[in-house]
Design a binder for these strands. Structure first.
Length: 488
RNA sequence: GGCGAGGUAGCCAAGUGGUAAGGCUGGGCUCUGCAAAAGCCCCAUUCGUCGGUUCGAUUCCGACCCUCGCCUCCA
């Protein structure tokens, strides 16, 4: 498999061990995560699922940043404790994850977990003793970037060259150098009751340190893949490298992968622009989590994604086409029990192409193209009666494997038709038999009012659940406890 | 200013030194009491602009134009 490595700015061959260790930067729970955040999480989900179908075991950590300036301010404004303030946003995050069918990470450590705070303090202690950190006049502890020569290599920023010009403003800070970043922020009155005791006085961890500590504690000194949004390259990931490598003396990450940004209707998503969406907003508008997932998934992760209502509509129609295909295959195999034949090609299409497309830096567009070619070609063959039951069964088996990566299986296929609808349909059948078209049309309206639709085919009436995403918001419920366990 | 991403049909979007995947929209056909649905078929002599290299470039090189992002805590 090949992946683009941000560190080298090249697509590289990547040969993972049986177990792949991945660290993914999670949300800061000061608010509901927005679809820009979820664009990155959907990409990480794709990576996770892809690796699993390639027979790797994925050990993935996603952190929850539940202490920082914004969460503290929010808690203070609301007059509640920090944990009371962040709890509903944590819950909201997991609900949204469920709605978008995101695979769970192995661990969801929170920055404020005692074991993580302890790990951070240990790292600072280590860095201080090695001269990589210092305590400034404001009592905060800073990382000394001049002590780590390769600082800037991920973002390709040359700090040696910038140093002289940066000095002009450095008197505004108590830091030795303007680019030095905080490891431990000394407590001040604005922090209220939020602080932890440390050998250097009351305070709280710096954001960059959280990730280093949690990554090393749960995944070890060296991890295989580290993901995040492109805006985390600098300074966040640069700082993580500095912290981890100064502690362990080893290369921290083998492969850095970053998702490009999401824009809305062609411009940057911002609350002030009125184009700021959360998953919850979109669900309320009647879009399903599955549709949102498709819209976020179908654009290659390194391409800036322009999120639009038109795009969501296209996602809805594409999924509908997929649903019809699956429905047709199911209808054919329903009454037959046939062992799945092995199907390698369908006409000119090699079924394995779906997976090999993803081998090349998760080329989802090429993979989806294979899927839709298979859909079109199998319809063509079925129209000509040129597919055996065994082949259809094999196609469904192929789809299941494809779906283990895409997670786009329709969820309404096997919904029972209610007795009442069946009765109405029976009446309509009679009306049609006696050519009572008026009565027939009235009955159709009645059926449609209840969320079902009737289609006349050669032999019979077909009763199908109408697409009504707004009534499906029950896939938005999730048991937080299950996810919130950060294990030991 | 420094670093980076991107400009491919109405919209979204792959891709390759040898002549443009796929999805949506649109059009046509089949089916049909009507309707709807569905399926099939069709839809870029052309890949931001201008030069260069080449037998040949959308793909390589150069310049330029445009859009967007990061540059101390925003995925």
């Amino acid at each position: 498999m090949y992946f683009y490595n941000t560190l080298t700015r090249k697509v590289e061959y990547f040969s993972p061990q049986k177990v792949v260790r991945i660290y993914t930067c999670g949300p800061t729970v000061y608010n509901h995560a927005h679809i820009g955040n979820f664009r990155t999480y959907v990409f990480e989900d794709l990576l996770h699922r892809y690796l699993e179908t390639r027979n790797h075991q994925v050990l993935r950590v996603m952190n929850l940043t539940d202490v920082d300036d914004k969460t503290i301010q929010g808690a203070l404004r609301a007059g509640i404790s920090l944990s009371d303030y962040t709890a509903p946003y944590k819950k909201s995050f997991f609900n949204d994850m469920k709605a978008l069918r995101l695979r769970s990470a192995t661990h969801y450590p929170a920055a404020t977990d005692p074991e993580n705070i302890a790990a951070m303090i240990a790292i600072i202690d280590h860095l201080l003793s090695r001269g990589h950190a210092y305590q400034a006049e404001d009592h905060s502890i800073y990382f000394r970037i001049s002590s780590f020569k390769s600082y800037g290599s991920l973002a390709r920023v040359n700090f040696e060259a910038q140093r002289s010009s940066a000095r002009i403003r450095s008197d505004e800070y108590t830091k030795e150098e303007i680019a030095d970043f905080a490891l431990w922020k000394a407590w001040n009155q604005a922090d209220g009751a939020v602080y932890w005791e440390s050998p250097w006085g009351k305070g709280r961890p710096g954001w960059h340190l959280e990730c280093s500590a949690m990554a090393m504690r749960l995944l070890g000194d060296q991890i295989d893949i580290h993901c995040g949004g492109i805006d985390n390259i600098f300074p966040h990931h640069e700082a993580e490298i500095a912290q981890c490598e100064c502690v362990s003396g080893k290369k921290f990450v083998r492969l850095w992968m970053h998702a490009a940004h999401l824009m809305v209707e062609g411009t940057k998503m911002a609350k002030s622009a009125g184009n700021f969406y959360t998953v919850g907003d979109l669900l309320e508008q009647g879009w399903s989590g599955r549709e949102i997932r498709y819209a976020l998934l179908s654009v290659h992760y390194r391409t800036p994604l322009n999120f639009t209502m038109e795009g969501l509509e296209a996602a809805r129609q594409s999924l509908h086409r997929l649903d019809e295909w699956i429905r047709r295959l199911h209808d054919i195999t329903r009454d037959h029990s046939s062992s799945p034949g092995c199907l390698e090609t369908l006409g000119p299409i090699s079924l394995n192409d779906f997976f090999s497309a993803l081998d090349h830096d998760l080329n989802i567009s090429a993979a989806l193209a294979v899927l839709f070619e298979v859909i079109r070609h199998s319809h063509r063959l079925l129209n000509e009666d040129a597919l055996s039951i065994a082949e259809v069964v094999a196609l469904l088996a192929w789809w299941r494997k494809v779906n283990s990566i895409l997670a786009l299986e329709p969820d309404l296929l096997d919904e029972e038709i209610p007795e009442e609808i069946k009765k109405l349909a029976l009446l309509r059948e009679k009306a049609r038999a006696s050519k009572n078209w008026n009565q027939s049309d009235l009955l159709r309206q009645a059926i449609e009012k209840q969320g079902w639709s009737v289609q006349d085919t050669k032999s019979e009436q077909k009763i199908i659940r109408k697409i009504a995403p707004s009534s499906r918001s029950n896939d938005h419920e999730v048991n937080i406890e299950k996810f919130n366990r950060t294990h030991s």
